[in-house]
Amino acid sequence: MSLIDVFLEIEIPQTENPKLFHANALSDFPFSKIAVNYLGFPVILISSKFDQTHLSQKNIKLKYIELTHNLECKVWENGKSKIDNYSVIIFKSDEETLQNYFLGITQSLLNSLSKKPTQKEVFETFKNFVEIFRSLTQTPTKTIQGLWAELILVEQSKNPETLLNYWHNIPEEKFDFNADSEKIEVKSSSNLERVHIFTAEQLNPTNDSQVIIASIFTKQVSNGLNVLNLLDKIDNRITENELKEKVYLIVSKTLGNTFEQTTKIKYDYDLAKNSLRFYRHQDISKVERINIPERVSEVKFKSDLTNIKPIDLTKLFTNGQLFKDT
């Protein structure tokens, strides 16, 4: 049973005591409980071996989460109450889709802890967790359409873990997936035309590099899939906790303070996967590097791929793993 399913079974406390929680134990994580507070918000309680680390740690309050160290709580579980100290994470939203996102990140966090974590171990693990949610207060770095297109390429790939290993750590990087000599740039179109905007660098790589353009049609529909739906599909196909955390961090950084609004936008899943085509950079019309003056930079242009023959990646001769696993 997923964390969201366990959480939704817990009864909300009928009191406004902020330190009282109704909880269920997590069999896979004996050091932790999932709980609900009087506002109906999901709460994670983590027990850790006392080592005075909490004395040097500050409590954190962000838009979506509150993180309190060594908090004395009253916890109701199976009809019995107990007072104990926990590291407490509260997710401040009653929207189920966002709660599911929070609990997905939480599961990755818990998986990375040992069975009897120390306070220091918990606090070190919290650093990435806090960074993910701090990103949700910042300016977005890319459109939801671009992010959705990149995620569906990962979801449709033969091996998502390979693509995630080479996925850009910051959305502003020149290529979406970069394995040195092998690079993939994802381009999406909402008007069902394969006309995309490129930078000169994307179509003029170094001589030892091969760039593949993944072209995808992305049409907004009310019954489609959103980013969080794609994350669920990808999450089911990867096992490495570090890659799971990477996905959540990139999604949060990309959408920033538009997260709550943009994750409601849905795209036609079948159209996207059926329209996916791959093109070699050599076959695409471009402004050649030799024609760009020395002091001119950030050159951008549109190029039409309609009459270009797409390639079959399985027939592309390559020594690397990125193209093989896409």
Results as ranks from 00 to 15, higher is better:
Asp51Arg: 06
Lys264Leu: 12
His281Lys: 05
Asp84Gln: 08
Ser93Trp: 09
Tyr269Cys: 04
Glu161Lys: 06
Ser285Tyr: 10
Ile213Gln: 02
Lys120Ile: 08
Asn236Cys: 10
Ser2Met: 11
Ile152Phe: 04
Glu260Met: 05
Ala25Gly: 12
Ile46Pro: 00
Lys116His: 11
Asn70Ala: 11
Val154Lys: 00
Gln138Phe: 13
Gly146Gln: 04
Lys233Ser: 15
Leu322Arg: 09
Ile46Ala: 02
Tyr86Lys: 00
Leu305Cys: 03
Glu172Leu: 14
Ser297Asn: 11
Asp176Trp: 02
Lys127His: 10
Ser181Met: 12
Lys246Leu: 01
Asn24Asp: 15
Pro30Ser: 10
Leu136Met: 10
Gln321Val: 14
Lys253Val: 01
Asn59Ala: 04
Arg194Thr: 02
Thr314Tyr: 11
Lys286Asp: 01
Leu225Pro: 03
Thr318Asn: 09
Thr68Phe: 15
Ile234Ala: 03
Leu164Val: 10
Lys264Val: 05
Ser27Asp: 15
Pro13His: 13
Asn24Val: 14
Gln282His: 13
Gly320Lys: 03
Gln99Gly: 11
His54Leu: 05
Lys61Tyr: 06
Phe133Pro: 00
Asn257Arg: 11
Lys49Glu: 14
Gln138Pro: 08
Trp76Glu: 14
Leu39Trp: 06
Phe102Glu: 04
Asn111Tyr: 12
Gly146Cys: 07
Phe21Trp: 08
Ile238Glu: 02
Thr141Met: 13
Ser209Phe: 02
Asp208Glu: 14
Ser81Trp: 10
Leu67Cys: 02
Leu316Gln: 12
Asn169Leu: 09
Asn178Trp: 05
Ser93Cys: 11
Val211Met: 06
Asn128Thr: 03
Ala179Lys: 00
Phe129Cys: 03
Lys63Ser: 09
Thr118Ala: 06
Ala23Trp: 03
